[in-house]
Design a protein around this nucleic acid. Structure first.
Lengths: 338, 338
DNA sequence: TTTATCTAGTAAAGCCGTTTACTAAACCCT
DNA sequence: AGGGTTTAGTAAACGGCTTTACTAGATAAA
């Protein structure tokens, strides 16, 4: 069934040595036309394709990158994976996907598998602050990029969205709609995203104003379940808040479910802004205003970084790149009196 | 950085031959405890992991399966990919993802890449009826499974959801709510899904009744864009229809967008049932009733089939397995008078 | 004519496991 | 003591490609 032809067969058919065929096919040998034609003919006739295992063994590379992320079924990561796959293809590389479900043992396992598979590079995405063991394992790779959330101790270039800008945009938008008391829902306080967004949110809310407005926050993890819990907690503790800034579509999902069950209306009872905008938030009830992450760009750029020639530069691994986010206004923020 | 240890180093360290180490590690050689201990110690000390490229070259297999599907960013396929990845991991295999965007040239390209990569098996998922060229290319694999939609001419076991049952459930539900005139939105008429669902829908609508009720249909492809077009066409041509059975969440998205723009309400103006239920339809406005595909089971079972010992059986490739679907009732079907 | 240069390649080593077929030594039995 | 059986391994071939270092022969230059 599969093509059993190898270099040797082709070489024999063309009447040259395997070296010649190999070098010719890899472009490291100039040949007169007659010889070229014979080899070309043999390759076509025998439908020759180099055995990738042999090739990789010989070259010591795998033409494969690993993408380690929390969950493919999460639309944000799915879009990310799609963008990465597309970009990798154009670099002649394949993509190995590992879902970690945000468990550190699975993160470690995925990293180990990737390392044992001698992948050429790793795109690591997490949702939480991983243990130092994860960073250590990640540092085993000669090429890795840390995406979307920071990994403390990781020696690798970082590619993040501009979380502070995101918080700022949300804050400004809410302020201009009259909101002053806003709750942020997000992952742990140690997360880069949480810290930056809170900072940005505070700046956005304060804006040019004289009084310093500090948002409250409710923290868990980036899952719908956590969204539900945070929503319950929020409802039982809410005092002055009139708006919620939700750190991810997943959290938003949980929040919406709880609110729906309790008959709490958006934006009448609370205004809401989501983060990511990877789901069909425009079809929700109401359409949800959100800060959109540049997910395609994130994926494409991550792959570019992996294949960048700048890895020779020793500083490359300490670089952090920020990609801009944008606010998509829809119907979940209500203008309130003042 | 990476472990540069190889078998030879381990063998030297343990004072035995490479054969011995290899056979011991692969369980094809019994050794006295003292020797075992020496090898174990060497392996640990040197942090030895067999070079997978060498291993694969030697063994002639890749421990990799390819999953070829239309779009990872589509939640249904994303969930499918997640389930497949999980199942593959438990079979010690890796997953190579290829997105085709439903283009036949990309399908062909993905199949060729997979074949050149000597993958151990392929899970092929498409949304349309592919050209015979695709089937031919697919048939090059010694192990492939055709998932979710048929590939005519493909010599491989098929794993589909029970589309007829799905149509039937939708039909019955609509009938019991008083609907008699229903439009099906779906992909091409040549699609297995379209045909079976229409058949099922008709049976469901007719149910025990005496008169034979035939649904109308509006066909395009399974994309939101197509959903929009079909919705427009539907609206310009609608006569008696009171309900729509949409063949996928993607189509539903397009339909909902158009309806929202036109101020057409669901379920007041038209009732709607979606298919797949991979998106958060429960949060849409209104919550959308849907036929749910058993997406996890689909993924798990596909991998099981790939690793099944039954491939020796020559009839195995002509098998078709149907997985049950279920109707999730929500708020998009209105009871109407009669 | 001799030497240098170029053309058109090639031999052989290397990448690293797996597996078949085989052996040396020890042990067992009668 | 002689023969058979275990035990504890091992040598060598194989899988298929890449790459370095080298050569035979032709051509050009001095």
């Amino acid at each position: 069934m599969k093509s059993r032809t190898n270099l040797k067969t082709v070489a024999q058919e063309a009447g040259v040595s395997t070296t010649t065929v190999s070098r010719y096919l890899n472009g490291t040998l100039e040949l007169p036309e007659a010889t070229r034609d014979r080899i070309d003919a043999a390759v076509i006739k025998l439908n020759y394709h180099p055995n990738p295992h042999a090739r990789r063994l010989s070259l010591g590379r795998s033409d494969t990158i690993a993408v380690i992320l929390p969950d493919i079924a999460n639309p944000f990561f799915a879009k990310l994976a799609a963008a990465i796959e597309l970009a990798a293809t154009s670099h002649n590389s394949m993509v190995l996907l590992h879902a970690t479900f945000n468990k550190s043992d699975r993160e470690l396992e995925a990293l180990k598998r990737a390392s044992q598979n001698r992948v050429d590079g790793v795109v690591f995405v997490t949702n939480r602050t991983p243990e130092s063991e994860v960073a250590r394992q990640l540092n085993e790779f000669s090429r890795a990029v840390i995406l979307d959330e920071d990994v403390p101790g990781g020696v690798a270039p970082r590619l993040l969205c501009d979380n502070e800008l995101g918080g700022m945009l949300a804050g400004r938008h809410l302020r201009s709609a009259g909101h002053r008391h806003v709750a942020y829902f997000g992952g742990g306080i140690d997360l880069h995203s949480t810290q930056k967004r809170l900072t940005g949110l505070q700046h956005g809310l304060t804006d040019g104003g004289s009084e310093d407005i500090t948002p409250t926050f409710f923290l868990g993890d980036h899952s719908p379940t956590s969204g539900r819990e945070l929503a319950e907690r929020f409802l039982s503790q809410v005092t002055q808040e009139t708006a919620i800034f939700s750190g991810s579509d997943e959290l938003t999902l949980g929040i919406l479910e709880v609110f729906k069950e309790r008959g709490i209306r958006i934006p009448e009872d609370f205004s809401l802004i989501s983060f990511d905008d990877a789901r069909s938030l425009h079809l929700f009830s109401p359409a949800i205003t959100a800060v959109r992450q540049p997910v395609d760009m994130l994926g494409t750029r991550a792959v570019d970084i992996l294949f960048s020639p700048e890895w020779d530069d020793p500083d490359f691994t300490s670089r952090t790149e920020l990609l801009p986010v944008e606010l998509i206004e829809r119907g979940s923020v209500k203008r309130i009196g003042q």
